[in-house]
Design a protein around this nucleic acid. Structure first.
Lengths: 208, 208
DNA sequence: TTTTACATACATCCGTGCATGTATGTAAAT
DNA sequence: ATTTACATACATGCACGGATGTATGTAAAA
C-alpha cells in the first residue's frame, strides 16, 4: 500500500486506539484478536504491528492517553483548594467519579481495567506501571489527609494510611459497581453525597 | 481407563475444582487452557470434560462451591442480631471481609472474579447468576437498612438504596484492593474500624 | 533514492470439541 | 455364586479454526 503522510499516520494510530478502546471494552482484552481491532479501525493487522509492538503495548498506549488529562484535572483541583486539604480530598474524589461518567475515554479504560482484562503474567509490566501511578496518587492523597489532620479538619487520631486506603477502595468500588450497570444509579449526581458520607465517617469514628 | 467407584469419582471432581481454583487465580481464566488444569489436577482433559460441560460450567461449579457456606455464614449473622438491624449490617460486612482473608476458597474465587476473569459474552449466563445472587444479597441488606432507619438507628432521611450501594461498593473496593497486594494492609484486623467509618458516616451525613 | 506506512502472505502453534477406545464398577438375571 | 449386560469414568487421538509473529511486497512521501 501507498505511504501516508505523517499527519495521516497519526490519525491511523488514533483510529486504532479508538477501535481498541471500543472492542476491548466490549469483548474483553484476551478474547479480542488484533485482527478484530484492525477491522474495527478500518485497517489491517499490519498497521497495528507498525504502530505497536503487540497487544500489551497497545493497551499501554490506551492508558497513557487518559492518564495525562486526568492527572491535570486532579492537579487543578489541588490548586483550587490550596489551603484546604480536606476540601482537596473531597474535590478530587468527586472529580474522579464524575469524570468517569462524562469522559468517554476514561470510562472505557476503567471498564477495561475493572471488567474486561485479566491480570496475567504477560501484562505484568503494564500493570506495574498502572499500579505505580495509582500508588503515586494514593501517596498524594495521604499527604492531603495528614495535612487535614494537622489543620484540625479531621480528628488527631485518624490513621492517614488507612483513611487513604478506605477512600481509594470506596471510589474503586463505586466505579466498579456503576460500570456493572450504569443505569442502576446516577453516579455523577450521587457522587457528592457518597463522598461526604465517607469523609463524615472519618470525622466521627476515627478513633473508634 | 478403568472405571472408578463413585467415591473416587467425587474425589477426582474435587481435585479438578481445587486445581482450577489455583491455576485460574494465578494465570487468569481466559489465559488458562483446560489441559493446564488437567495436568495440575493429575488427570487428563477427558476427566474434566466428563465432569463439566466446558470451562464456564467448571467456573460455575467453583462459584457454587463457595456460595452456600457464605450464605449460611451471613444468615447466621442475621440470626445473631435479630432485633438489631444496624448490628446485622455491621456483623455481615465484617464477616465477609474477614472471611476473604481466612477462607482460602473464597479468597481464590474473589481473586478470580475481581482480577482474573473478563466479563465476556461467553461467560454471560455465568455472570448473570453471580450478579443475581449479589442482587439478592443487596436486597436483604437494603431491608436491613430500612429496618435500621425505622428503628431510629439511622437518620430518617437516609436513602436505604444509596446506603446499600455505598456499602457494597466500599466492601467490593476493599476486597479488590486487598487482593491486589495482601501485604499492604491487614484486612481482617482493620475490617471493624473500616466498616464503622462508613456506618458512622451514614449517621452524621445522611441528609447532607 | 531511501525511508516510511502500511497491506498481504505465510508458517507456526495452540486450544477446543468430539469421537473413540477401554477397563472396570454394578446390578440384575440365571 | 456366577455370569451377563450395561453404564461409568476416564484416557487418547484427531480435525478444525483461529491467533500470533514475521517476512515480504509496494507505492508514495521526504
Amino acid at each position: 500500500m501507498a505511504r501516508k503522510t505523517k499527519e495521516e499516520a497519526r490519525e491511523t494510530r488514533s483510529q486504532v486506539l479508538d477501535a481498541a478502546e471500543q472492542v476491548f471494552s466490549q469483548k474483553g482484552v484476551t478474547n479480542t484478536s488484533l485482527n478484530e481491532i484492525a477491522i474495527a479501525a478500518g485497517v489491517t493487522r499490519g498497521a497495528i504491528y507498525w504502530h505497536f509492538k503487540n497487544k500489551y503495548e497497545l493497551i499501554a498506549a490506551l492508558l497513557e492517553r487518559v492518564k495525562l488529562p486526568l492527572d491535570d484535572m486532579l492537579a487543578a483541583q489541588g490548586a483550587d483548594h490550596a489551603d484546604d486539604p480536606l476540601g482537596q480530598i473531597r474535590a478530587k474524589s468527586i472529580t474522579v467519579l464524575q469524570r468517569c461518567v462524562s469522559d468517554t475515554h476514561l470510562r472505557a479504560v476503567c471498564t477495561i481495567l475493572f471488567h474486561k482484562c485479566e491480570r496475567i503474567a504477560d501484562a505484568q509490566p503494564l500493570m506495574d506501571r498502572h499500579l505505580a501511578s495509582r500508588a503515586d496518587c494514593a501517596q498524594e492523597l495521604e499527604g492531603n489527609f495528614s495535612a487535614a489532620i494537622a489543620a484540625g479538619q479531621l480528628p488527631a487520631d485518624t490513621d492517614p494510611k488507612l483513611a487513604t486506603l478506605g477512600l481509594f477502595s470506596y471510589i474503586d468500588g463505586l466505579i466498579y459497581n456503576w460500570l456493572l450497570d450504569p443505569d442502576q444509579f446516577h453516579l455523577a449526581e450521587a457522587a457528592p453525597r457518597l463522598v461526604e458520607t465517607y469523609l463524615c465517617g472519618l470525622s466521627c469514628a476515627a478513633g473508634r
